[in-house]
């Protein structure tokens, strides 16, 4: 079984080296791909030094969705059976990859999502962000008809069937909640697994106040539009 771990990274020079080396150490059997989303810092150069890591340098910044999709396209082209996606900022732990993969490997789910609000107590993030996360989780649950505790989590594992669909259609920015609704609409089995997540170390989060407001409006609109869309897979 060919398995690859995709890490989208935008200006993550402080964290990306450790994240990639951890993954190499803990999951030596997996291939690892970093999608450098047009970073202006040394993200690409840092990854280049790590022998085992494959590196896609996007010519300009596409946003998280475009970067992830580039990784999906690469994985699809090389016929990978299992794709795991994790963040490059150190929130997601290499040691948890096994846990995320399990439901997909067992065939219990097409897509497995790591949740910071399930089973395992992860350190709490700041109140504002936590409220936002919970709220988006609530809306996503209502619309998708399945209880989702951590809709914004970018720690996910996909089987080939899910990969094939998402390679073709993937939202451009802040794609996580929309992806769940899109997958559920197309009758994919989505399953959450509790994982330990850390607070981000160095670097800055991609969300500030104005972006958060944009995020909230954009996600709500996407969710609403997704309700109206007809499924692509019958």
């Amino acid at each position: 079984m060919k398995s690859i771990i995709i890490i989208p990274a935008y200006n993550e020079e402080e964290n990306i080296g450790k994240v990639v080396r951890d993954v190499c150490k803990v999951n030596p059997e997996d291939d690892i791909l970093v999608v450098n989303d047009g970073s202006s810092d040394r993200t690409g150069l840092t990854v280049k030094e790590i022998q085992k890591a494959k590196l896609i340098n996007l010519p300009y910044n596409l946003g998280i969705g475009g970067a992830v999709q580039a990784g999906f396209k690469y994985a699809m082209g090389l016929n990978y059976d299992l794709v795991t996606r994790m963040d490059g900022d150190g929130q997601h732990q290499a040691s948890e990859i096994k846990r995320i993969k399990e439901p997909v490997l067992k065939g219990e789910a097409d897509v497995s999502i790591g949740s910071r609000f399930l089973d395992i107590a992860s350190p709490k993030s700041i109140l504002g962000r936590r409220i936002g996360q919970k709220l988006i989780g609530l809306i996503t649950s209502l619309v998708s008809g399945q209880k989702i505790t951590d809709a914004t989590s970018g720690f996910r594992c996909y089987n080939k069937k899910a990969l094939a669909l998402l390679t073709k259609f993937y939202p451009s920015d802040y794609p996580e909640p929309e992806e769940i609704i899109f997958l559920k609409k197309n009758k994919f089995k989505v399953r959450e697994t509790g994982v330990l997540m850390k607070e981000r170390k160095g670097g800055t989060s991609s969300l500030n106040v104005i972006k958060s407001i944009y995020y909230a409006i954009k996600v709500s609109l996407s969710i609403f539009i997704n309700i109206l869309r007809t499924p692509l897979i019958k």
Binding site: I56, N57, P59, L62, K73, S172
Partner: peptide
């Protein structure tokens, strides 16, 4: 342009290899 961007990134990786 997004698709082209992604394709260029993937091709670059393949060429380097």
């Amino acid at each position: 342009t997004k698709n082209l961007n992604q394709e260029i990134g993937i091709l670059n990786l393949k060429i380097r290899k």
